[in-house]
Design a protein around this nucleic acid. Structure first.
Lengths: 143, 143
DNA sequence: TAATATCACTTGCTTAAAGCAAGTGATATT
DNA sequence: AATATCACTTGCTTTAAGCAAGTGATATTA
């Protein structure tokens, strides 16, 4: 059994609610693949190298859609494939992820290229806006 | 059994490493109690209203000390009590927590007072510096 | 100073979630 | 028509979370 439904809120504390949604080992890694690596399919997430289990991945994708953080739609060129993309609510998690990345890079041994980290530290908002634009531009293209 | 030892890194990705450390339901709530609510003891964390289990709390406190995110020392006035405080590494998680709080407040129903949230949104760094000072001043007091 | 209370845990057990391998049904390719 | 790929699901094992009770050290009270 795999179940990650966001439960009845234990407390109304915003941090607690946030952790009910993405306070686990995998949820933010899927969003990282989606927003930073520009992966968009189940298969790409699965093969991203972190080793997530198939049932957990399916479960998290379902939960992220229920929460309105991502949306999925079938590819027109290949109907087997579902392409996921972040919503506004999902894109607004970028600052959270960026701060986590900066913290980890400062205190732990990471494989992150130094110049990318420098860019990230020195221009958080510019970096975030770039990522954001990639998805909002794409949105227009469909409009 | 309760075991949260930070495992062998699955990937060198900074986000992945960060999640190995605090990617769970409880770790950041303890740090919230410590830094925002100014709780400092096991008992206070336990009674903070989120319903953490005693073994999980003990486990996370141990892990946070091993990671150098908090330090604990016995109270001089009552030798039963251990007072925990954040290290620099712990204080540097404030931006992560603040962004999570802002996100949750924007998209979920929270019990956070509107004026505190407004303050937080409009002056993230000022807010963070205030919290930070409370602990670095206290440090000086000990010499 | 003996008895009781409090503090920070630990232990043992149950329940829920993560991890793993294999399978399924739909669509696509050969 | 046969095989491959895609996005999952199912069933089982392992690990971690949840819960109640207990422990040892220190502190307070009668």
């Amino acid at each position: 059994m795999v179940k990650k439904d966001v439960p009845e809120h234990r407390s109304g504390c915003p941090l607690s609610i946030a952790l009910e949604i993405f306070g686990d080992r995998w949820t933010l890694l899927i969003l990282r693949d989606l927003m930073f690596k520009q992966y968009s399919t189940y298969k790409e997430f699965l093969e991203s190298g972190e080793g997530i289990a198939t049932n957990v991945l399916a479960d998290r994708i379902r939960m992220l859609q229920e929460q309105g953080i991502i949306v999925g739609e079938r590819s027109t060129s290949d109907a087997r494939i579902i392409c996921y993309r972040p919503t506004q609510k999902g894109l607004d998690l970028l600052p959270v992820m960026v701060e986590m990345i900066i913290w980890a890079d400062q205190y732990e041994e990471t494989a992150a290229p130094a110049r990318i980290m420098r860019r990230l530290r020195e221009d958080r908002t510019g970096f975030i806006d770039e990522v954001r634009k990639r998805f909002t531009e794409a949105e227009k293209g469909k409009g």
